[in-house]
């Protein structure tokens, strides 16, 4: 089975998310901070009248937080109820949050098509990243891509 990944970078690390889980990618960074919220919550975003909770992926993955730049993007995930439609068509998909959630990343990279069999376990030396948040890694020509464990965020 081939898997299409939407890939993004945090620091110099390449991460991927199953593209079927992605609702849209947004460059609107007008995020309202929420005080007293858990640290990984960047704030709230108005997405055409719906409120999206934006999580800072760098914080979630335990990496250093860079200030937002012109390349910063928000990957907005489909809600779990939206995914039911695909599940009925036979796709096996991970569970996403029930509310609208966006992931703030440093930059968006290309779409990557990979073979599902090529997934490997996380190497033990990937210690700076919170290993529970990563499902597997896949070796590509240009390097490793880490698959984000959506259920853990």
């Amino acid at each position: 089975m081939t898997l299409q990944l939407c890939s993004f970078k945090i620091e110099e690390n390449l991460f991927g998310i199953n593209v079927l889980l992605v609702r849209e990618i947004n460059s609107n960074l007008d995020i309202t901070p929420v005080d007293l919220a858990p640290p990984e919550v960047e704030g709230l975003l108005n997405l055409r009248g719906q409120i999206v909770t934006v999580l800072n992926m760098a914080k979630v993955l335990g990496l250093t937080i860079k200030p937002r730049g012109p390349q910063s993007r928000i990957i907005i995930l489909k809600t779990n109820t939206e995914l039911d439609k695909y599940r009925q068509e036979g796709y096996e998909l991970e569970k996403t949050p029930l509310d609208l959630v966006g992931l703030l990343v440093d930059s968006i990279e290309d779409m990557i098509t990979v073979e599902e069999e090529n997934q490997e376990k996380i190497p033990a030396n990937l210690e700076e990243i919170e290993s529970t948040k990563i499902k597997s890694v896949i070796q590509l020509n240009q390097g490793l891509v880490a698959l984000v464990n959506v259920e853990a965020i």
Binding site: D35, L36, A37, V41, I51, T53, L100, V101
Partner: peptide
């Protein structure tokens, strides 16, 4: 969202 339930 459920992420913000902890903020009373």
């Amino acid at each position: 969202s459920s992420y913000l339930k902890s903020a009373l």
